[in-house]
Nucleic acid binder design. Structure first.
Lengths: 210, 210
DNA sequence: TAGATTGTTAATCGATTAACAATC
DNA sequence: TAGATTGTTAATCGATTAACAATC
């Protein structure tokens, strides 16, 4: 029930939100919910909720609604957050540090096993219980530990330089905070971009025009 | 030419990308570009580029294309990054610090004038040349300095508690890193959400299914 | 059984792409 | 002028919403 060939990116982007709301409802001890009630809480239409969920399977029951706990589990499985994938983080500047310290990687299916920075002065410093390693050691580290995900908290130019090597080393997923467009050079890896400055400019627009 | 009643959010979200690419082309010393050539570089269709730009005005010239410098300026104006809006940052944890230090607020129309945290132990510590202030001083600070934007690097619960006061104090724009849904409680302010954990889960999905 | 609510098909709406006349 | 390329209208495509029969 989670082999979804043609699920659109619009649907996928809503899944984390479902997961989050269902998690909260579960915490609150609720057992079941209808698409109608969920729509009121989440701000999607009931129709959209049913459509979205039915991309992956019939998780509900007529006349009853959805069981919160099992739907939560299902969506977690669809998202893959029940897996554990080894990941490395590259760039231990302000952003890299914050991402390393702030994100609950484990809750989302990731396990940070190495942190790298090209600034040798940082080498050995500890973040999150892990030593910062120099990027020179990346090759050996990957050969030994076979991480499959990289979190890129480095500038575009560095990302562009490094990515071909990372791809060669078998890194299949990229959480990319740079503006380097990985996907267009390497169409076969999974990329999720976080463009904070784009988001800030979008806010600027909204303030100007709303 | 930048009074756009019905420009869709899809178009708006692409503007920062145009701005970024045009900035690079300008740096490279290029003078003009056609929608066709720009489409090759950016990965949008030429048609979409022309449609998007024409939401705001006719910036091109038949038979010639677009002047890069002036289009860059125009889009900057549309985005409002030529303005300077006073902003406060709330939450000086890992994320707040990184955002304060990492983002070029000035280049995007913002000026950070105050940093706040409810943890009194941090008070007085300097970030970016600004002292961390205790949130108790928020009211007086806002009355005196009238910031119009808040960057929220605090947990949902804190955001939910604080936002009504911020709205009352005249804050009109919110760069929201929390999961608290400001827009549904306060439909009249501008909100741009950054949901990093949603993004990470989307990556998880992509890795599982691409 | 009757009421509720799903899963799913059909209708609508919006966004993207294609086409082309206008014009530099 | 001829060639290039826009601005804009029309066609297509995809996503959202509405409707309803199936069924718990």
């Amino acid at each position: 029930m989670s082999k979804p060939e043609g699920v659109s990116i619009s649907v996928i982007k809503r899944l984390p939100r479902y997961y989050r709301f269902l998690g909260e409802l579960k915490e609150q001890g609720m057992i079941r919910i209808s698409s109608k009630d969920l729509s009121a809480k989440m701000g999607f239409t009931a129709s959209q909720i049913r459509q979205d969920l039915n991309c992956f399977g019939g998780f509900g029951q007529q006349g009853y609604g959805y069981n919160i706990e099992s739907l939560y589990e299902e969506i977690g499985r669809i998202l893959g957050v029940d897996k554990t994938r080894n990941a490395i983080l590259i760039g231990a500047g302000n952003l890299g540090r914050a991402v390393a310290l702030h994100m609950s990687f484990e809750k989302r299916g990731f396990n940070i096993i190495g942190i790298f920075d090209k600034n040798a002065a940082l080498s050995g410093q500890m973040i999150r219980g892990l030593p910062i390693r120099h990027t020179d050691g990346l090759y050996d580290f990957c050969k030994e530990n076979t991480p499959v995900v990289a979190v890129l908290c480095i500038p575009s130019a560095a990302a562009k330089d490094l990515t071909p090597e990372l791809v060669k080393l078998g890194i299949k997923g990229y959480w990319n905070f740079s503006h380097y467009d990985i996907a267009s050079d390497f169409p076969d890896v999974a990329v999720e971009n976080v463009h904070l400055s784009d988001s800030l400019m979008t806010l600027s627009y909204k303030i100007s025009n709303f």
